[in-house]
Simulated scan of single mutants.
Amino acid sequence: MCALSELSTGLDARVTALRADHDFAQRLHALGLRIGRSVRVVRRGALNGPLQLRIGTTDIMLRRVDAALIDTDAIAPA
């Protein structure tokens, strides 16, 4: 298990926990980041910039400090 901010680029992972306050957790749910969903880090911004994430067919940008509040488990490649 690792935080989403630590996940390697290009790897798929499953969201296992959201360690955020209620309001921020609701925002993450609205963006599609829910427990059990798969997520992939597509790209990392330079100099600790934001992460580009792919959830299903949707891409979002998320600050690394916020991604650190999301726990994931890596999904083995098929």
Results as ranks from 00 to 15, higher is better:
34 R>A: 03
71 D>L: 07
35 I>T: 15
71 D>C: 01
77 P>R: 03
25 A>K: 00
12 D>Y: 11
63 R>E: 14
11 L>H: 07
32 G>V: 02
6 E>R: 11
67 A>P: 11
36 G>I: 02
54 R>S: 11
9 T>H: 06
70 I>S: 02
49 G>A: 02
66 D>N: 13
48 N>H: 11
58 T>G: 02
29 H>R: 15
14 R>L: 09
64 R>A: 12
28 L>K: 00
51 L>A: 04
7 L>R: 08
63 R>I: 03
76 A>E: 13
10 G>L: 03
40 R>T: 15
53 L>K: 04
49 G>Y: 08
40 R>W: 09
70 I>N: 01
3 A>P: 05
26 Q>H: 04
78 A>L: 07
24 F>P: 01
15 V>F: 09
61 M>N: 06
64 R>I: 08
11 L>Y: 06
24 F>R: 08
45 G>M: 08
59 D>Y: 11
73 D>H: 10
36 G>N: 07
63 R>V: 01
23 D>L: 07
70 I>L: 02
45 G>W: 09
73 D>C: 10
76 A>I: 04
48 N>V: 01
22 H>E: 10
43 R>Y: 06
9 T>E: 15
5 S>M: 05
12 D>C: 04
67 A>V: 02
47 L>Q: 14
25 A>V: 00
42 V>Q: 06
76 A>Q: 09
20 A>C: 13
